[in-house]
């Protein structure tokens, strides 16, 4: 009964919001190119519905800007369903905005109120330089991945079926959860140290936990951490901000696992 009342209340509330469009003030980081200085610009925006996604709201703004003959705001996006990790954005001081466990493309305008001011900035890190406006270069993640985030298998036609190797369920699960990292960079953006350890540890773990990945585990963790340091990411001080802001809920356990793997590999 309680449950029903609550749901009813929520439906009522959300339908209420749908009727009344929101008026917002957007403070958006505009930067012409990597070399320019850039700064915050303010845009009033009306006619926003609660059921729009955050990126749709930006689409509305951009259409207005294009109609006025101004440069649209450049932002990253691809799948718009929370699986590719392309969308980024620091929204009101948090990566992917105020909600938990979602990407920016999954954030909806019902998370905001009529009259709100929303500050939108690019992810900030030395290893994520701004390309234009809200778009940053995250190829540093790719270079970490290339340094060791793979397994070497013979694919010449006699590949063994992966399922023929028995793997304990909890280990397979832990590897799977680590592999759900979409490489979005929210962990770096949230971290006061701009540390990439949650990302790197997820990529180390997803392989190290499986027999196929164990073979190259030592070489992998040493090479990936070395690349991570080279890229200029900061050092983890275990604040835990990354785990809270990660859209996929990647656990700090992965960082501890990377710390163990690395220690073992470097004393060998």
């Amino acid at each position: 009964m309680r449950q029903f009342e609550l749901t009813h209340h929520q439906i009522f509330k959300s339908s209420n919001l749908q009727i009344k469009d929101m008026n917002l003030t957007l403070k958006i980081w505009r930067q012409k190119d990597a070399a320019s200085k850039g700064g915050i610009q303010t845009y009033p925006l009306g006619g926003i519905e609660a059921d729009m996604s955050f990126l749709e709201m930006l689409d509305v703004l951009n259409q207005e800007l294009i109609d006025k003959g101004e440069e649209p705001v450049v932002f990253d996006h691809d799948c718009r369903e929370g699986i590719c990790g392309t969308c980024s954005l620091q929204i009101n001081g948090e990566p992917h905005g105020p909600d938990r466990g979602i990407t920016t493309c999954q954030l909806h305008m019902r998370a905001f109120k009529d009259g709100d001011t929303i500050t939108i900035e690019p992810f900030r890190a030395k290893a994520f330089p701004v390309i234009k406006d809200l778009v940053v270069d995250r190829t540093s993640f790719e270079r970490i991945q290339q340094a060791g985030g793979y397994i070497s298998v013979n694919t010449s036609g006699n590949t063994q079926d992966a399922n023929s190797i028995p793997i304990p369920k909890d280990q397979a699960d832990a590897a799977f959860y680590a592999a759900t990292c979409i490489g979005c960079g929210a962990c770096v953006a949230a971290c006061k140290n701009a540390s990439a350890m949650l990302f790197t540890s997820a990529k180390v773990s997803q392989m190290a936990l499986l027999p196929q990945g164990e073979v190259e585990a030592d070489r992998r963790v040493l090479a990936m951490v070395e690349q991570m340091d080279k890229e200029g990411f900061g050092n983890c001080t275990n604040t835990g901000a990354c785990e809270i802001e990660c859209p996929k809920g990647i656990s700090l356990e992965n960082i501890a696992r990377m710390n163990r793997e690395y220690m073992r590999a470097s004393v060998k």
């Binding site: 009101n92 948090e94 900035e121 006061k192 701009a194 900061g234 050092n235 604040t239 809270i244």
Partner: peptide, 25 residues
Amino acid sequence: INNRKARPKGYVSFKPSTNSKWSSR
């Protein structure tokens, strides 16, 4: 010092209190 260098340009709006404890920062 290294961690400061890892984010040379800071945020205009940064809300670390929503995701981490004061002592840890």
